[in-house]
Simulated assay, not measured.
Amino acid sequence: MARRRVTMADLATAAGVSKPTVSRALNGHPDVGAETRERILRLAEEIGYVPSMSAQALRTGRFKMLGLLVPNIAWDWMPDVIRGVTEEADRRGYAILLQPMDASAKTEADFVERVLPVLPVDGLVLVIPPGLVERIAELHAGGLKVVAIDDRVERPQFPSVETTDRESVRRVTEHLIATGRRRIAFASSDDTRNLRLRRDGYRDALAAAGLPETVLMTSDLDHRALAAEVARRADEFDAVVTAFDDLAFTVLAALRDAGRRVPEDVAVTGFDDVPAARLTHPALTTVRAPFYELGAAAVHMLIQAVEGEAIPDRVVLPAEPVVRESSRPGDVHPLNGE
């Protein structure tokens, strides 16, 4: 038999007070004494009382629930984003409703038009599916509180948090130049805004050093063909800056299969610093993106907006290069190493 839900009336009876007193105690009203409040809170935990979300929303105008919309929870860095979101929300007394999305336009449209309007949330944190930007912007203009964690699309028409893609790749490319590399290629796929910024950072460093550039691109989600091209053309360059760690892993494997030594013949760098970056052979030089901090910052901004505070249009958190064996000849390590 299903257990009956514990009500506010049950809690009031257990505490020997009225329902209004319980309500005021749970909501922190100053007219309830500290001893009474503590006793009610203790009893609520003991008997398993959970406030009704709908009743709370009617009373306060808020659900104390935030939506988290993500296009792919299987990405290696997504758990850190989700952890940052949930831990900051919990610290502020909010719950998180996670909504994964697939890549289909129909699913995106159905979500915006049919699901999102009835979700019991006070606001939305999202890693932007590019096809949803305009629809989310329309909802934001209509009053929905939104903060984006992303830099893959052009500036959205709502607040966002992002990281230093261009600056960080410039720095890691400068590291390669400082270690004596002079023929440095850039490899990437998916020509999204964040990857263009990373390519620009690579170009900034080469232009400042007076060095030529070699850009290798693919639109194929399977990185093996691009990695094979890198290995086939490895005589043309002595380092490869890849736009993200997953591509760097594939490039490392292709170079190894082609008999090329890393970093002796070709240095390799990535971007993201997913956990596997420490486990490759050699360990991968990369850029550590602040995924946990991005999630926490987005929730902090969103709760400020929900609670009526002004928030900035854009917050930028730094990503830091991490030098490991895939680019480090001998003891040369001008950046933060591990």
Score class of each variant (00 low, 15 high):
M78N: 09
A103R: 13
E309Q: 10
F186P: 02
L197M: 10
F186T: 02
V316F: 01
G201H: 14
R91C: 08
R171V: 03
A9N: 06
Q304R: 13
P71T: 06
R278H: 15
L98C: 00
A310L: 08
A148M: 00
A74K: 05
L119C: 14
A208Y: 12
A12N: 02
D246M: 07
V323H: 09
D165Y: 05
A267G: 15
F111A: 00
P129F: 02
D10C: 03
L317Q: 10
T242H: 13
R5G: 03
V306H: 05
A254I: 13
A253P: 00
V22K: 03
S168N: 02
V6D: 00
L139A: 14
K19A: 10
L221E: 15
E236L: 00
D273E: 12
A227M: 01
A137E: 12
Q157S: 14
P290T: 14
D102A: 04
D151K: 09
R135A: 14
E338F: 12
E236G: 00
L335P: 01
V146D: 05
A319M: 06
P20L: 10
M65I: 10
D122N: 03
E213D: 11
P159D: 11
G295M: 04
R181A: 15
G33R: 13
E293V: 01
H223Q: 00
M217V: 11
R3Q: 08
T179L: 01
D246N: 11
G33M: 05
F186G: 05
T60S: 09
N27P: 04
E46Q: 11
P20D: 14
H300N: 00
G259Q: 08
F237G: 06
D191Q: 09
E167N: 05
V32T: 04
E167W: 09
P130K: 12
L126V: 03
S188T: 01
V262L: 02
R37V: 14
I47P: 00
Y202K: 11
N27Y: 04
G330N: 14
D273C: 10
E338L: 13
D273L: 07
G210A: 12
P71D: 05
V32I: 04
D313G: 13
D90C: 07
G180T: 15
L211F: 09
L119R: 08
D31K: 01
A12L: 03
L221T: 15
L116T: 12
A141Q: 08
H175Y: 15
V22M: 03
V262S: 00
F249R: 01
T192L: 09
R83T: 10
P79K: 07
